[in-house]
Write a protein that binds this DNA or RNA. Structure first.
Length: 556
RNA sequence: GUCCCAGUAGCUCAGCUGGAUAGAGCAACAGCCUUCUAAGCUGUGGGUCGCAGGUUCGAAUCCUGCCUGGGACGCCA
């Protein structure tokens, strides 16, 4: 439990009690008390708008209500120093100076656990993300998915959820046959035969690699082989090759999955049949034009969807329904999919399918990641995966580094399109906020080293009440907010809150650094307190960066 | 035509459950290193929050309509 939240809770209770004592409203009609931290210092440490909220019910002017509340407030209860009424009816609270005093000790004691909360109450969350077809390289847009999904999972974990990260491998559809035929063409090309890549084939460099590797390992063996046998082998070979590459690239990007789930396994284990049986039993399917349809319109979809095509094959949707049934059967409290903006139209039919299966659709949620446009010299670069002109994740990492790429992609709202300027990400300059934050961490490291070298007590007792300078109070307030930032970022699935926070914290640190001297031989008491403060800031920045999957360097 | 996302400072973007004078970075301008890392700090200028209505004590935020840009509307995946 963190200090700030406790203080706020006590304060809220005191306010609620005052409202009741003033007879403004019946207990049943009591609105929830909202506390905010004002931007202006003149508006106190906390403020509430409760008087305005009550204006209607109590049929009184907000300022009058505010006065009633204040006169019934038990100031002794919550470290309140002073209360003001301001503006249209805000009640501003100025806290006793030491209300922030325990924060440093709390942070130091919690260490790398500082910031963790249990707001998730152990709920089990499953997050499926990336899930790129194993037919080519991960490119820029996938990097955004990977960074977002991974940080989201970290946030869930840090806020008391139990998370499973899952990658759905599309290893059963047409595209895998296309992969096999593309590999075949590259294999023959490696042999010197000018076989063309099929129309729907993949033209990425990775396929050339596969063809060459295959040719080196197997020589001419497959040239004269039975075509069906050859394709079957090339399919499984290509799949393995691609999956390994995906795994390695993601690992390098510091993204790991708890489970790689094979679409093919849904066929092999009869899960698709089972799901179809349920849909049929519940009478949400019908036959028309030689195909089997799902009555998704009964659940708000624009039109019904085909489950089994005229040719007897499943559409993409069908195994995916079985997959989601299986997710539900595993007992998750939340099932989250991270999809690209171009798939948003897929959401209504998936929701419909879940309801048709008889499962609670509230558990299902989709986070949409909008497009990434690559920008070079101010102009958008057209990318095409099929044509092989997309910039791969690997190239991106090579150019800008994992830290910068991850930070950059999580910095903005996932729902906004993003222009990614390669040169900007590449530039190790002040345009890159990740360096700014890392620098703050490294700066503290250096200070602490200096402190040791100069013989200051680094791990001793300290008196936090000496931390009264503006910049210190600013740091303390920000430190105290960290657990709440994590909880809110998780709840709203908004990792950009975390980058924003850690940037602000770094900013406060730099500002403090330039305003005050930490190591002061003439004031050992204050020095001890400030060293403790620095350690707390360092821990908090490191914890935040860890959630972002960004390194916290000791020196730069 | 229907649906989704976006439109906020010159540029890139934040903006919480509706709150007080709408923020940050970059760019521009003016300062700060014999002192713990100047990859930093301090200050200045810069805004009809796309447009028009509505809801209310109060709207960048919620509702409706419209405009602009992007995306999606398949028995592809």
């Amino acid at each position: 439990m963190n200090i700030l939240a406790q203080t706020e809770e006590t304060l809220k209770q005191a306010i609620a009690q005052a409202v009741l004592n003033a007879g403004l409203v019946a207990e049943a009609d009591m609105p929830s008390i909202v506390l905010e931290t004002p931007k202006e210092k003149a508006h106190g440490d906390f403020a509430t708008n409760i008087a305005m909220q009550l204006a209607r019910v109590a049929k009184k002017a907000p300022r009058q209500i505010a006065e009633d509340i204040v006169s019934h407030l038990d100031k002794s209860r919550a470290s309140i120093q002073q209360v003001d009424i301001a503006g249209p009816g805000f009640i501003n609270f100025f806290m006793k100076q030491d209300y922030l005093g325990d924060i440093v000790a709390t942070v130091l004691e919690a260490g790398e656990d500082y910031g963790r909360t249990n707001t998730g109450e152990g709920q089990r969350v499953q997050v499926e993300f990336v899930s790129v077809n194993p037919t080519g390289d991960l490119h820029v847009a996938h990097a955004r998915h990977a960074a977002f999904g991974d940080v989201l999972c970290n946030l869930f974990d840090a806020s008391g959820h139990k998370v499973d990260r899952e990658y759905y491998i599309n290893d059963a559809g047409n595209q895998i046959d296309n992969l096999a035929r593309s590999v075949e063409a590259r294999y023959f090309q490696a042999h010197g035969v000018d076989m063309e890549i099929p129309e729907d084939g993949y033209r990425g460099d990775d396929i050339i690699d596969i063809g060459n590797t295959l040719y080196q390992e197997h020589g001419d063996k497959w040239i004269e082989a039975d075509p069906a046998e050859r394709l079957a082998f090339f399919k499984s070979y290509g799949l393995k090759f691609e999956l390994n590459k995906l795994r390695e690239d993601l690992a390098e990007f510091r993204v790991h999955f708890d489970r790689w789930f094979s679409e093919q396994s849904l066929y092999d284990d009869g899960k698709i049949e089972a799901a179809l049986d349920v849909l049929k039993e519940r009478e949400y399917t019908y036959e028309k034009d030689g195909a089997v349809w799902l009555k998704s319109t009964e659940f708000g979809d624009d039109k019904d969807r085909v489950l089994i095509k005229q040719d007897g094959n499943y559409t993409y949707l069908t195994p995916d329904i079985a997959y989601h049934q299986y997710k539900y059967d595993r007992g998750y409290d939340k099932i989250i999919n991270v999809w690209g903006g171009d798939h948003h139209g897929y959401i209504p039919r998936m929701r419909a399918a879940i309801q048709a299966l008889g499962y609670p659709v509230e558990k299902f949620d989709v986070k949409i990641i909008q497009m990434v446009n690559l920008v070079e010299k101010g102009e958008r670069v057209k990318m095409s995966k099929r044509a092989g002109t997309a910039v791969s994740l690997r190239e991106l990492i090579g150019a800008a580094g994992v830290d910068a790429v991850r930070y950059y992609f999580v910095m903005r709202s996932n729902e906004s399109q993003l222009d990614f300027d390669v040169e900007l990400a590449r530039s190790e300059s002040n345009e890159n906020p990740v360096y700014y934050v890392q620098y703050a961490h490294a700066r503290i490291s250096t200070m602490l080293k200096q402190a040791k070298n100069k013989g200051f007590e680094v791990d001793g007792a300290f008196d936090a009440s000496l931390l009264t300078a503006d910049k210190e109070l600013d740091l303390l307030t920000k430190l105290g907010a960290f657990p709440q930032v994590i909880a809110e970022a998780a709840e709203k699935a908004a990792p950009q809150r975390l980058t924003q926070y850690v940037f602000d914290l770094a900013s406060a640190l730099h500002s403090f650094y330039n305003a005050e001297k930490v190591l002061d031989g003439d004031n050992l008491e204050l020095t001890s307190a400030r060293i403790a403060l620095m350690k707390a800031v360092k821990i908090t920045i490191a914890n935040a960066l860890k959630l972002l999957g960004v390194r916290a360097p000791e020196q730069m």
